[in-house]
Amino acid sequence: MNTPMVEAIGVRKVYGHNVVLESIDLTVEAGEVVSLLGPSGSGKSTFLRCINHLEPIDGGEISVNGSLVGYRRAHGKKYELHRKDIAKARRDVGMVFQRFNLFPHKTALENVMEAPVIVQGRAKGDVRAEAMELLDRVGLTDRAGHYPSMLSGGQQQRVAIARALAMRPRLMLFDEPTSALDPELVGEVLDVMRGLAQDGMTMIVVTHEIGFAREVCDRVVFMDGGVIVEQGAPADVFNNPEHARTQAFLSKVL
């Protein structure tokens, strides 16, 4: 059997005395598109951020593509890695944020080129060509020279997706990618994500877009109160939710 792209075992996360994630088990196969649903405060964004160690976990473990995230195992213990080594492990994982977080002092093209040139040390000419292709893929060739402040929210988020893709990731994490957008701009971002899913990218998407989850995702995972309540194919979870908490949530958003 192939190594799963993401394997979380008994993940636990606490802030002080507040348990935000408890015994999370989740396996995502390569090529799978999974959406994390749940009310705000359910821990879905926190879990997503744990996958690339933006949040350190307090128990259990997460592996991406077979290697442990943020730790090194030896003598039956997990040793925390140095920040530089964690950074290296993140190169395979792209992340898209709710607030885009584009670099405001760089143009769209420079945003996309930054990490391949600086982190991977690739030649600028090659990266530029590839970056222009990526901007073309998200439909923004004509905005390459624009600074983020001159772009609409939807355009900024599409640049952010191109920026993440420039590192040629094997896994893409989306943290509520359309929540900060005006309603009429949501579609253009979802279109890009749909295209990515069709190309076989492994994706984990925290979202409130039920329509997108139903149509594009292979599996939906419903979280509440820091635990996974239920998961399954979109049709099953949306049409016949087993758990009362899932039913209550869906009745509000559907």
Partner: peptide, 10 residues
């Protein structure tokens, strides 16, 4: 965070 997520060292 965005820089970190792109694999940049501190």
């Amino acid at each position: 965070e965005a820089a970190e997520a792109l694999g940049m060292s501190p």
